[in-house]
């Protein structure tokens, strides 16, 4: 039947692109991580865990990603809920407010934070005028700067993940809860939040993955002293030119994320 052949014909370019242009590169990376001058070796991994430096980078990456994910979820949920429940005009504006930063390059947004947080930026100047901080005060090159910048970069992903689920919730469920005596906040906690859980979990996983693997915002806002894993990978590739070590670090990042993602994906598969 032509239908079958047609279906394959349409799939082949995409499959070829993904196998040759996506799977193969990742395999190559995996191979390089265990390849030494004389055959297979785990030396690069041993090097990572040898002294305290790289584990501390890994720990910082995990810790900051968790904080960023938690803050993003805490801001994202009310924002997504409000967006899903307001009238169409306001809803459109709220969506623009979320999509405009999302569709702007990360590089540009990080630049904005560099200006905001810098020594002559509005935040530092205001605090200085109020006499709260010294002359040389700057928020740049702190973990707080990275967290703030990353929350802004990743908030749209969280809001959109939640918005999809929240818009599909039947508002009559909330009305039913209210008529049966729940207060507004009780309704949110006992009806909306449990039903929105798939969106909350999906958004959180996405944000966690993205924040653990980004280096542009962390390296520009955190500077050289506050290194994260992805930044260290970039440095190994471009500065020390140690590709095998870069590959090993990528594998560690990859495995770490798989550890978080796979239980969820299996859970999702079971629930259909």
């Amino acid at each position: 039947m032509t239908d079958r052949r047609e279906a394959w014909l349409f799939l082949v370019p995409g499959l070829a692109l993904l196998v040759l242009g996506f799977v193969l590169p990742i395999l190559r990376m995996l191979v390089l991580s265990v390849l030494g001058p004389d055959g297979l070796t785990l030396q690069q991994f041993a090097r990572f865990f040898q002294d305290g430096y790289y584990p501390s980078i890994l720990w910082r990456t995990v810790r900051m990603s968790l904080v960023i994910t938690a803050i993003t979820a805490a801001i994202g949920f009310p924002l997504a809920y409000i967006t899903s429940r307001v009238g169409p005009r306001l809803r459109l504006w709220l969506i623009v407010m979320v999509i405009l930063p999302l569709m702007t390059s990360v590089v540009v947004r990080t630049f904005g934070w560099m200006v905001l947080l810098g020594r002559s930026g509005p935040l530092a100047t205001t605090l200085r005028d109020m006499g709260l901080v010294g002359r040389s005060f700057s928020l740049m090159h702190t973990e707080a700067a990275i967290v703030l910048g990353m929350v802004q970069v990743l908030l749209p992903f969280m809001v959109l993940s939640m918005l999809g689920v929240l818009s599909r919730l039947d508002p009559r469920l909330e009305e039913a809860a209210r008529t049966m005596g729940c207060s507004f906040l009780q309704t949110i906690r006992r009806v909306v939040l449990p039903l929105a859980m798939p969106g909350v979990v999906a958004g959180s996983l996405l944000v966690f993955t993205l924040s653990a693997s980004s280096f542009i915002t962390p390296s520009l806002l955190g500077g050289a002293r506050i290194e994260v894993l992805a930044g260290s990978i970039y440095k190994s590739v471009t500065q020390t030119l140690d590709w095998n070590f870069a590959a090993a670090q990528s594998v560690i990042l990859f495995l770490g994320l798989a550890l978080v993602l796979i239980p969820y994906l299996r859970l999702g598969a079971r629930h259909g």
Binding site: L11, G14, L18, G21, F22, L24, P25, I26, L27, R28, M29, L32, T209, L210, A212, S213, S214, F215, A230, I233, Y234, V237, W243, A246, A247, S250, L253, F254, L257, L261
Partner: peptide, 27 residues
């Protein structure tokens, strides 16, 4: 399963893909 495969570049961090692409292309 095929659809999941096609959407996998969304899940795999781009830094991991980027480094693989660089290594494969260079070799």
């Amino acid at each position: 399963a095929l659809e999941t495969f096609f959407l996998s570049p969304l899940v795999i961090p781009s830094i991991i893909f980027a480094i693989g692409m660089l290594m494969l292309w260079s070799s």
